[in-house]
């Protein structure tokens, strides 16, 4: 299927000097759900912000590369115009409007829409997905629990009627059971609402259970990619991301890959040698 989002060879600098993304390429298929895995500081959030162009607020800048949404470059667009095209980002750490009520938060999510009946029905739809929010609609968002805040943040994004949601670290600071619930809702959202999702997540196990395809980032680069089921089985990914690294925790993923390649190379070499040896005899 044609990708709804295509990122090619993107490099990002902060403040003109700090090289954060060093050539990132990835694609999200139409109505697809794709994960961006990696540790803290790998460049996941920066990648998402490069797409939504919220980098500028942090003095960041895309220095090279292309970012296309539905075949159209969004590199030079204002964040507000990008939302109008159909990309909405759920920022890391929820970032609700704390002093606004839950319902006002959701309405703010529909800011880019023409206001009227659609907003009302969209609100009802969000409350259907998140019944807990319906009970607290008049409460100031700052007083919601962490899980409810994440729900409100996702609901707020839904109010913008996006074609693509950039979801940054929804599991952050939440209890495992809640994480599971949120991920199930995200999965349902993708399936039932025809919205594509690019999910940046440290919790690889959780993410791989709902996405179709995933990219693994480290040090501002994509170091591995593949179908979710394949990655979940992949030894190196498991070793590095699912806490199976044991005493080698501090090794970088790339180093492990290099080791693996080197080992494979050695095996091939030995094979060739032994094959050559057998020729000799």
């Amino acid at each position: 299927m044609a990708p709804v989002l295509r990122i090619e060879d993107v490099e990002v600098y902060y403040g003109g000097v700090i090289h954060v993304l060093k050539g990132v390429s990835l694609a999200v298929p139409e109505k697809g759900i794709v994960a961006l895995l990696g540790a803290n500081g790998a460049g996941k959030s920066t990648t998402l912000k490069a797409v939504s162009n919220l980098l500028r607020a942090e003095r960041g800048e895309v220095a090279r590369g292309t970012i296309e949404f539905l075949g159209r470059s969004v590199l030079k667009l204002d964040p507000a115009d990008i939302v109008r095209l159909g990309i909405v980002q759920v920022l890391e750490g929820r970032r609700l409007f704390e002093h606004l009520t839950v319902e006002e938060n959701l309405r703010a999510g529909a800011y880019a829409q023409t206001w009227g009946e659609t907003v009302k029905s969209d609100l009802e739809r969000v409350y259907e997905y998140f019944p807990a929010l319906a009970e607290r609609r008049e409460l100031k968002a700052g007083y919601l629990s962490g899980g409810e805040q994440q729900m409100a943040a996702i609901g707020r994004a839904m109010m913008g009627r996006p074609k693509l949601i950039l979801l940054d670290e929804p599991s952050m600071g939440l209890a495992p059971l809640l994480v599971k619930e949120i991920f199930q809702i995200v999965h349902r959202l993708n399936r039932d609402e025809d919205v594509a999702i690019l999910l940046a997540e440290q919790n690889a196990l959780m993410a791989l259970s709902i996405v179709q395809y995933a990219y693994v980032m480290e040090g501002g680069r994509v170091v591995s990619e593949g179908r979710a089921d394949a990655l979940a089985r992949d030894d190196t990914v498991r070793r590095f991301y699912l806490g199976m690294a044991d005493h080698e925790e501090h090794q970088s993923y790339r180093k492990i890959l290099e080791e693996k390649r080197a080992a494979a190379g050695m095996r091939n070499l030995r094979k060739r040698q032994s094959a050559g040896g057998s020729d000799d005899s």
Partner: peptide, 17 residues
């Protein structure tokens, strides 16, 4: 509403368009 949203968190407000 947009203004009150910006007052709370202007980056999040921008992410809403």
């Amino acid at each position: 509403l947009g203004l009150r949203a910006i007052a709370d968190d202007h980056v999040a407000a921008q992410s809403m368009g």
